[in-house]
Computed example of a mutant assay.
Amino acid sequence: MWRHIVSNFLTLLVVILIGLGTLAAWVKHQYEGPGPLAEAVCVRVAPGAALSTVSEDLAAQGVVSSSYIFRVGADYAGRANALKYGSYLIPEGASMSQVVGVLTDGGPSTCGSELNYRVGVNATRIILRELDPVTGRYVEKAKFDPLSEEVPAEVSSELSKSDLRVRVTLAEGVTSWQVVEALKAAPFLTGNVEEVPDEGTLSPQSYEVTRGSDRAALLAEMEARQSAILAAAWAARADGLPYESPEEALIMASIVEKETGIAEERARVAAVFVNRLRRGMKLQTDPTVIYGVTRGQGVLGRGLRQSELRRETPWNTYVIDGLPQTPIANPGRAAIAAALNPAQTDDLYFVADGTGGHVFATTLAEHNRNVARWREIEAQRQGN
């Protein structure tokens, strides 16, 4: 009898062990196998969120098939207390194991909203975008001018979220005054700016910032990046350039930046001005005259007057010899490179060609013909 009881017990034990093994294998498959998500979604983890809350949210969104298995797997992997707050993109079919990795590895948010504070030459804009997880593309939610418009409610709401990604982008050719005025109006920055940085010393590029970042510290970073770019370009400059210092090269780069927005033209525009300096010719470039009128504080918004072309200022290159006394804007990396490695040409003149670019000439006679063609184009446009 006892032998029969023991035999039945052992049989039951084997069945239980097999069942446990099968259950464990099923749980492992559920945790590591493809998940139920039919299309990518954004998952937001709030600061200080508990694993239990996050797992229930994941189950409700259809990201995981079982909140319990998700918690058990995360705990077994030693990541139950390693959640990082933010908004994360979860791809379709992601396994629970993959989801745990995404939510605990940290790093910048890969989903949700992004606020881009664009400081442009003609306008400053705040652009709020949100990632569409299905297409992987950003959808614009709001766009406004912070210098003249109230902050929309939806932007204020996003600014209250700790995982909002924020960047400040400087367009090539903005002036230091424009940058400072724009940063003063940025609702996500703090601190005062005591003085406007020297013209040309801020690097036009994109800067990742956090809410509450100090304005002066951000300006210092912009100056540091521009200094590094200029130093590297100066070290790799062409031989025989008519500059006595990196600062003079920066002045030339700012002129090149304001004269053309076409990347392929920068080196050739730089060559025209370098050739003029070498021959002792006046640079005669309108953007320098405009800077003498505005001092970089805003956009002129009209054509130059003859009186302004004749008026002597430290920047009017129709009147003064050589380079103006300071840069006339903040040039980008490409304009700096062009100023220090100009094209090898004999060009001395250029004028607009009607397509957004310029036509170049080596002689005054050729240039006058090009100017006549440009005036014909202007007349035709005014007549239409």
Score class of each variant (00 low, 15 high):
2 W>L: 15
3 R>F: 06
12 L>P: 03
18 I>Q: 08
24 A>S: 12
28 K>R: 13
37 L>N: 04
43 V>M: 02
47 P>C: 13
52 S>L: 11
52 S>W: 03
53 T>N: 07
55 S>M: 07
55 S>D: 14
56 E>V: 12
57 D>R: 11
64 V>W: 01
65 S>L: 08
67 S>L: 10
69 I>M: 03
69 I>P: 00
78 G>L: 07
79 R>Q: 14
81 N>W: 04
82 A>T: 12
82 A>P: 07
82 A>E: 14
93 G>W: 01
93 G>A: 15
98 Q>K: 13
98 Q>E: 15
103 L>K: 04
108 P>C: 13
109 S>N: 05
111 C>N: 04
112 G>L: 03
118 R>P: 03
122 N>K: 13
123 A>E: 14
127 I>A: 12
135 T>E: 10
139 V>Y: 06
142 A>H: 00
145 D>K: 04
151 V>L: 12
157 S>I: 10
162 S>E: 13
163 D>T: 04
164 L>Y: 00
166 V>G: 04
166 V>N: 01
171 A>L: 03
173 G>E: 02
173 G>K: 08
175 T>L: 08
185 A>F: 04
192 N>A: 14
193 V>W: 00
198 D>V: 15
202 L>Q: 04
208 E>N: 06
209 V>K: 05
215 R>W: 00
216 A>N: 12
217 A>Q: 11
218 L>H: 00
220 A>N: 11
220 A>R: 12
221 E>P: 04
223 E>P: 02
227 S>K: 15
230 L>C: 01
233 A>K: 00
245 S>F: 09
246 P>Q: 13
254 S>C: 00
260 T>A: 06
263 A>T: 12
263 A>E: 15
265 E>N: 02
271 A>Q: 01
272 V>Q: 03
274 V>F: 01
275 N>F: 01
276 R>Y: 05
278 R>C: 12
280 G>L: 04
281 M>I: 07
292 G>Q: 02
294 T>A: 04
299 V>R: 07
305 R>L: 15
309 L>M: 12
319 V>A: 05
320 I>R: 06
320 I>N: 00
323 L>Q: 00
325 Q>R: 10
336 I>Y: 00
345 T>A: 10
348 L>E: 06
348 L>K: 03
356 G>Q: 05
357 G>A: 11
357 G>P: 06
358 H>D: 13
359 V>L: 14
363 T>R: 07
368 N>F: 01
370 N>S: 14
372 A>T: 06
375 R>W: 10
375 R>D: 10
377 I>A: 08
382 Q>K: 15
383 G>M: 08
